[in-house]
């Protein structure tokens, strides 16, 4: 077994609220500097910066996971991770039908930049990405499973856009084997509230700026096999 240091929730300059400096290339570079082994790029309701992130991560020797942070109809944030880049992009395409397509207002929400691996802007997403989709909290797992992906509730210890803040509690009989927390405080309390084992809690940064990408503080033990690390990660998380 090997310790894989991770950050599974990172936003790039494609998220309206993401810093324009948080390019896929810079994110991978900071991850390398910080000593991370596995990083997931999870922009709001899109995976369109994942192709560039994959190329940059490969160059830096980082294991990249293609992902997105999906906003449910109830405004709950869910971390969605995919086995392959292609799966993530197929989901991105299908999710477009589920989004409320309203033009972005960059001056208010921020720009939404699609980049290549060399930090060139190749396109700008026109419609606001972070708004709610019409998928309910109950519908998201099945939708993501349709693209061979996995999902779990994001930052359940935060006062906004978390399942506990919006729904008051984890719905009974939920099927999530893991959940994400922002901080380590009260992890035992949250594990009880979520009926999820403490050791299945994921601690990610939800970084919207390069500065907040995690240092090598949290790791998950996986078989020493970088080729299959993503599949092994999903298994270790309980999927």
């Amino acid at each position: 077994m090997k310790k894989y240091f991770y950050d599974l929730h990172i936003h790039s300059c494609l998220s309206p609220c993401g810093d324009d400096d948080a390019t896929p290339c810079s994110i991978a570079g900071i991850g390398k500097l910080n000593g991370l082994d596995i990083m997931a790029l999870t922009d709001h309701n899109t995976a369109k910066n994942c192709p560039a992130f994959f190329k940059a991560a490969k160059a830096y020797g980082i294991i990249a996971v293609a992902g997105m942070e999906l906003t449910t109809a109830e405004d709950i944030h869910m971390v969605c991770l995919f086995r392959t880049l292609e799966d993530a992009l197929a989901c991105d395409e299908a999710l477009k039908e589920k989004r409320i397509l309203m033009p972005n207002r960059p001056k208010i929400f921020g720009r939404q930049l699609i980049m290549d691996e060399d930090d060139n802007i190749i396109a700008e997403e026109e419609n606001i990405l972070s708004f709610a989709t019409n998928l309910s909290f109950d519908e998201v797992p099945e939708f993501i499973k349709g693209f061979n992906g996995v999902c779990f509730p994001a930052h359940i210890d935060r006062p906004s856009n978390s399942v506990i803040a919006v729904l008051g509690a984890f719905p009974p009989n939920h099927s999530f084997p893991c959940a994400e927390m922002h901080g380590r405080e009260r992890v035992t309390d949250y594990a009880v509230m979520a009926s999820i084992k403490t050791e299945k809690m994921v601690f990610s940064s939800d970084a919207h700026q390069l500065l907040y990408i995690k240092e090598a503080t949290d790791f998950i033990e996986l078989p020493d096999d970088d080729e299959n690390a993503v599949e092994n990660l999903f298994k270790a998380l309980g999927f």
């Binding site: 109830e74 919006v166 729904l167 008051g168 509690a169 009974p172």
Partner: peptide, 25 residues
């Protein structure tokens, strides 16, 4: 719902658009 929990009172009619099972709790 986390807001409603601490504020709705007994014998209130509670108007919402939320349809998740947690409204029952």
């Amino acid at each position: 719902l986390s807001w409603v929990m601490g504020r709705a009172k007994a014998d209130d009619a509670w108007i919402t658009i939320m349809s998740n099972v947690n409204i029952l709790a």
